[in-house]
């Protein structure tokens, strides 16, 4: 218990990094996931094929590999640099990799949501003269989102926990890294371990409850 109290400031600073990553990746992957699903259901076959290929590749690659690629491949080899400050650069490389990965899950959740919207809704939208993008953004996606709030919550929960893999992109600041670093000096500490578990539960559990409640409240009556 003493180790937990002694290292609490470091651990909290690390956990704050996880929260920062979660917030940024959460917003970005919802945006890119929505764009991606638009591409996957677009009337243009080439776009659809490209979207499908991207989703299948990114979703089926282990996250550690995605993050390692964004750091070793995109940054070191290809020269994608967000900042000269290594820690800032590392942060954004994690954001890049984790967003690229999580967006595909957002996209697939939304696509299953689109499948819950009766085909007649799209026909009625087209019949009053809405374009494809208008039908998608005004009629289809608002209903699809409401149908998949709970699954989207699960995607966000998985994403928050996935921020602990940040170390794979060479970002040495998150709570999992601080924990490992602390164990290297103090030896393994069960209280530190449990402390981190509790910290994640405090963040993740309310998201589960909130999305469950929202899903009921915002359900579209048919």
């Amino acid at each position: 218990m003493d180790e937990l109290i002694e290292y609490a400031p470091d651990l909290l600073a690390g956990f704050a990094e996880n929260l920062k990553l979660s917030a940024v990746c959460g917003v970005l992957s919802l945006i890119f996931g929505t764009i991606l699903v638009g591409i996957r259901v677009s009337p243009t076959p080439v776009l659809r094929a490209a979207g499908t290929a991207y989703v299948n590749i990114a979703r089926n690659t282990p996250l550690t590999l995605v993050l390692a690629f964004s750091s070793l491949g995109l940054s070191d080899q290809i020269g994608l640099i967000f900042s000269d400050e290594p820690s800032t650069n590392g942060f954004w490389l994690v954001v890049l990799g984790l967003t690229a990965y999580t967006s595909t899950f957002v996209c697939e959740s939304l696509r299953s949501g689109i499948n819950t919207v009766p085909f007649g809704q799209a026909e009625a939208a087209r019949a009053i003269g809405l374009t494809f993008l208008q039908s998608l953004s005004l009629i289809i996606l608002p209903q699809a989102f409401r149908a998949v709030i709970a699954p989207l919550g699960n995607v966000m929960i998985a994403m928050i926990k996935n921020t602990t893999v940040a170390i794979a992109a060479g970002y040495l600041a998150d709570v999992a890294f601080v924990m490992k670093d602390t164990f290297d000096t103090t030896g393994v500490s069960i209280p530190i371990f449990l402390g981190i578990v509790v910290a994640f539960m405090v963040v993740v559990l309310p998201i589960g409850f909130l999305t469950g409640w929202l899903a009921k409240r915002l359900a579209v009556a048919r």
């Binding site: 007649g120 809704q121 026909e123 009625a124 019949a127 003269g129 009629i139 209903q143």
Partner: peptide
């Protein structure tokens, strides 16, 4: 410019 009324109404549910 062409209105359409469907058998299943298809009002926007949301």
């Amino acid at each position: 410019e062409v209105g359409m009324v469907f058998q299943s109404f298809n009002l926007f549910a949301h």
